[in-house]
């Protein structure tokens, strides 16, 4: 597989799995308004995954659905950071959401500068939606850090930050570290991060769930 397809799959897998985890809040978010807003963000992430899979699929001679749902669990390249099931911890969910949006912003900026016009074009499109995700993440992180629960946010950051670094290639990490520190003062960049493609125990059950319907009728046209 080309480096291009590999990079697209990493990104698509992150977006699909995060979208999936975020969608677990549908119906149980802290308020009705937030339920709609957060579900919509989850849906956007899955939409981004679809567009990225389609780009990779054209190169690999397959389809977005096959890439998203028909690969064996060990082939997925998502980061452990997005795999974590955080329901019902809203504070941790918000901290992950914020760290993800910062990292994703850094990554997308890089892709917009790509010499590959398809990738640069898609990155620009994705970024126009991500603007609103960042607004959402930042207003929540400000609220959480300004509340009595600020210490819980700090604790969540200590746990999640090293994993978030695993989203980015080493060359891009300093931008992430700088942006997060400027807003929150958090910097746990000294900790070991998780290499991409290494999954933990929650991954297999998540994959089972994600692909359950698709596997129930292999080859069906949905």
């Amino acid at each position: 597989m080309s480096g291009r397809a590999q990079a697209l799959l990493e990104l698509a897998d992150d977006e699909l799995v995060l979208g999936w985890r975020d969608s677990e809040w549908t119906g149980i978010a802290p308020s009705l308004e937030e339920d709609v807003a957060f579900s919509s963000i989850a849906q956007n992430e899955i939409g981004h995954a679809r567009a990225l899979y389609e780009l990779a699929a054209r190169e690999l001679g397959t389809t977005a659905d096959e890439l998203a749902f028909d690969r064996p669990p060990d082939d997925y390249r998502c980061s452990r950071f997005v795999e974590l099931r955080l329901v019902p911890e809203w504070d941790q969910t918000i901290v992950r959401h914020y760290l993800y949006e910062v990292a994703d912003g850094v990554r997308i900026e890089e892709l917009r500068r790509s010499g590959d016009s398809e990738i640069a074009g898609l990155a620009a499109k994705i970024d126009r939606e991500e603007v609103y995700h960042r607004i959402h993440a930042e207003m929540w992180i400000d609220r959480l850090r300004g509340s009595r629960e600020a210490e819980r946010a700090d604790a969540a950051a200590e746990r999640l930050y090293p994993l978030a670094l695993g989203l980015l290639d080493e060359a891009l990490r300093p931008v992430f570290v700088e942006r997060v520190a400027a807003k929150t003062g958090w910097d746990f960049s000294g900790e070991a991060t998780a290499p991409r493609g290494e999954h933990d125990d929650g991954w297999e059950p998540l994959w089972q769930e994600m692909t359950e319907v698709r596997r129930s009728e292999p080859g069906a046209k949905w």
């Binding site: 308004e33 937030e34 709609v36 807003a37 919509s40 609103y132 607004i135 959402h136 207003m139 609220r143």
Partner: peptide
């Protein structure tokens, strides 16, 4: 801030 974001979604 929250109201504006929610209004955008709704």
């Amino acid at each position: 801030r929250f109201a504006e974001e929610y209004a955008r979604e709704f």
